[in-house]
Design a protein around this nucleic acid. Structure first.
Length: 438
DNA sequence: TCTGGGGTCCTAGGACCC
DNA sequence: TCTGGGGTCCTAGGACCC
């Protein structure tokens, strides 16, 4: 009987709320700099390369496209006295965790979708006032962390994304919360939303859809299932159904183990010296190995790549990668660094100014099902003991306190540029915010 | 002079097996 | 002269996300 009612009136069993922090990185910086309240702030990508976040005040001053190199806009930013920060992931990760913890008070079912957003599931049947609930979520997070968020609530995840976008676009009128809970609202929202702004529609698909005269999310839902499937495979079809209000993306509460773990970072300055590149690579491999052990995975396959600056018009270009199957699946830093060094040797050529080196581990298997290799034996107990000791020391004393000699001691010669880095306010005793009482 | 990093999923096509 | 069919696994490439 109940189900018949639910079907007849299209009452959703559940509602999804998407909570998303407003210009997260910029907001994190502002929390610890009250003097910047109401002032324009931007945050740069790794290596101080591109603008990746700008707060409302900064966006109001100038049209600042994200992922554009900052040097093009430096004059503009300085003219408007915009405050510029390097990215401080230690700080953002910690602030993110605080937000997620608060969200668990509002629903036991939460999917942490990215560093600055999460879906939570709400009961669709009880007579809850979603708008009021959304506002309570927002005010609690603001009060406890200082971070502003937008809340979108709807019967499917894709529609919650749409609602969230509306909550941000019309933040003032709506109090940063928007609920799609009727056919009228759904249709109105989809007619408003440009096709290129739909979650799951990227540049390539947007272009093709525009060519088909599909310019809004609503027009997309008017296409036939077959047409959508042909253009965009089952991924597109799922999206269409979600926008129609039929939920087919479920809440992923448990984080699946990663299938690949990698690191690749640009050097602060171009490198020509093999030894320095080898050190950087060893350092990245070590970081990945820590992640592998944390996840309880061993890697079977390793890819190492090396390339020059693709944007440079005056440098000779070179880019190469090499994929090897490891003799034995492992998460031992010692073994992985050794194998990575061999790879680098195989692809390194003298005479180029290198910009980036990277490593990607794949073919991950649980550590307890690793198969032996008759012809290649790693002294596993010995490596495991060493790694365990190293992990414990580094956890207590700080990252990379203990590392392999291959990582070298000249990190400053290759590490990323972070000239405007803020303190790690929340995770290091000696960098805590100091407050002077009058 | 200066242009990010870390992931996921899906499909097509080839190799291989019976 | 005639030259199967079905299943599985792997990989590369393309699309997307934040």
């Amino acid at each position: 009987m109940l189900y018949a009612l639910i079907l007849a009136y299209k009452i959703p069993l559940y509602m999804y709320a998407l909570i998303d922090c407003n210009s997260f990185y910029a907001s994190c910086e502002q929390v610890f700099r009250p003097d910047l309240k109401g002032k324009p702030v931007v945050v740069l990508s790794n290596n101080d390369g591109c603008i990746v976040a700008a707060n409302r005040e900064a966006k109001a001053l100038a049209d600042l496209p994200m992922w554009e190199p900052v040097y093009k806009y430096l004059d503009l930013l300085q003219h408007h006295e915009v405050h510029i920060f390097s990215s401080n992931y230690t700080l953002y990760a910690d602030m993110s965790q605080r937000v997620m913890n608060i969200l668990t008070q509002f629903s036991p079912n939460i999917e942490i979708y990215s560093i600055d957003e999460a879906f939570i599931m709400l009961d669709g049947l009880s007579k809850i006032d979603y708008t009021a609930y959304g506002k309570e979520i927002r005010s609690t997070i603001l009060k406890n962390t200082g971070l502003p968020v937008g809340v979108g609530i709807a019967p499917t995840k894709a529609l919650a994304k749409v609602a969230n976008r509306i909550s941000k676009k019309y933040a003032q009128q709506l109090g940063n919360v928007y609920v799609i809970d009727s056919e009228t609202k759904r249709e109105k929202a989809l007619k408003w939303l440009k096709i290129e702004d739909v979650w799951g529609i990227g540049r390539a698909h947007a272009k093709r859809l525009h060519a088909l005269q599909v310019h809004t999310a609503y027009a997309f839902t008017q296409l036939s299932d077959d047409a959508v499937r042909k253009q965009m495979s089952v991924v597109g079809l799922r999206l269409k159904h979600e926008l129609e209000g039929k939920s087919c993306l479920s809440l992923e509460e448990i984080q699946a183990p990663k299938k690949a773990i990698g690191t690749a970072k640009s050097f602060g300055d171009k490198l020509t010296d093999y030894k320095l590149i080898e050190q950087a690579l060893a350092y990245y491999v070590s970081e990945c190995a820590v992640k592998l052990r944390k996840q309880g995975s061993c890697a079977q396959v390793m890819m190492v790549f090396l390339h020059t600056n693709q944007f440079s018009t005056h440098d000779k270009q070179y880019a190469k990668n090499i994929v090897v199957k490891l003799p034995q699946a492992t998460h031992s830093t010692i073994e992985l660094v050794k194998q990575a060094a061999k790879c680098l040797k195989a692809i390194f050529l003298d005479g180029y100014r290198y910009k980036k080196v990277g490593v990607l581990f794949s073919g991950l298997v649980p550590e307890d099902v690793v198969q032996g290799n008759l012809f290649y034996q790693i002294n596993k107990p010995k490596h495991d003991a060493a790694m365990h000791a190293m992990d414990r020391l580094n956890q207590r004393m700080g990252k990379a306190t203990v590392k392999l000699a291959t990582c070298g001691t000249q990190r400053k010669k290759w590490k990323i540029k972070q000239e405007q880095l803020s303190p790690r306010y929340t995770t290091h005793w000696d960098e805590l915010l100091k407050i002077k009482l009058p």
